[in-house]
Amino acid sequence: MALMLHLLRHALHDHPPDMLCGRMAGVRLAAEGERQAACLGRRFPLGSLDALLTSPVRRCRDTAAALERACGLPAIVDPAADEVDFGDWAGQRFPALQADPRWTAWNLDRDHAAAPGGETTHALRARVIALLDGILGLHPQGHVAVMTHAEIVRTSVLHILGLPMQAYDRLEVSPASITTLSLWMGGGRLLGLNDVSHIMAPVPMREMESA
């Protein structure tokens, strides 16, 4: 008996790609993000999920709305699925962050780092473990989806695989991707990572014939 947990990253947002949005208010989906969300929704038709959770951040709630329409379930806001609290870094551009030694430390020593005025990686991992344990306690079997953020997905996978936080950059988590875990009391297994097949543009038949 196991739970199939689908960890979903929100679709593409409308702010610059080199901006660390964090928990900023007013970050909406881009037009491409709306398309990605619709494609993601089609992966979870009516009856496919037993529960749908979402981060409170708007870009997650907007992406989750496409799943609500598809699977017929309301998305329940869970603060444990929230984005990392990046504190003073929220809203800054990555080129500017490269000059901050604290940003360098964050990326070189994730197991002990902390965002200035924000969350430590130790607190992040504890929050994610509590999220997984809480979902498993309520749903020991079936299928549950969580609309969340790249770092939450990475941290979940690292926890299940028994890897340190420093291994975060070995995992790609794309917008509107699906990562699936099988969870049971006392253990878990990674079943799928960064599945984006649903948002890939179809290859024209003429190109397929000439390949």
Results as ranks from 00 to 15, higher is better:
Glu68Pro: 11
Arg189Pro: 04
Ala2Cys: 06
Asp50Cys: 12
Arg154Ile: 15
Gly91Asn: 07
Val57Gln: 11
Arg61Lys: 02
Ser197Ile: 00
Arg170Glu: 03
Ile135Tyr: 09
Arg154Tyr: 01
Gly117Glu: 07
Pro79Phe: 10
Asp111Trp: 02
Leu40Pro: 00
Gln98Asp: 14
Ala75Thr: 03
Leu181Gly: 12
Ala66Cys: 11
Met208Asp: 06
Glu172Thr: 08
Ala126Pro: 01
Trp89His: 12
Ala2Lys: 08
His143Cys: 12
Glu151His: 09
His149Asp: 09
Glu209Cys: 10
Met147Pro: 03
Asp50Arg: 13
Arg23Trp: 06
Leu124Glu: 03
Val153Asp: 05
Ala11Gly: 10
Ala167Asp: 02
His143Lys: 12
Ala167Gly: 01
Ile199Ser: 14
Leu67Gln: 11
Leu3Pro: 05
Ser182Cys: 15
Ala80Met: 11
Asp109Gln: 09
Thr180Val: 05
Arg43Ala: 15
Arg43Lys: 12
Cys60Gly: 11
Gly162Asp: 08
Leu132Ala: 07
Ser177Gly: 13
Ile129Gly: 09
Tyr168Gln: 15
His15Ser: 12
Trp103Tyr: 15
Thr155Gln: 03
Ala105Asn: 10
Ala145Arg: 04
Gln166Glu: 07
His112Ile: 07
Pro56Cys: 13
Ser55Val: 09
Ala2Gly: 09
Cys21Lys: 01
Asp111His: 04
Val196Gln: 03
Asp133Phe: 10
Arg154Asp: 05
Ile135Phe: 09
Leu171Gln: 06
Asp78Thr: 02
Arg127Gly: 07
His149Glu: 02
Asp133Trp: 01
Trp106Val: 15
Leu97Val: 04
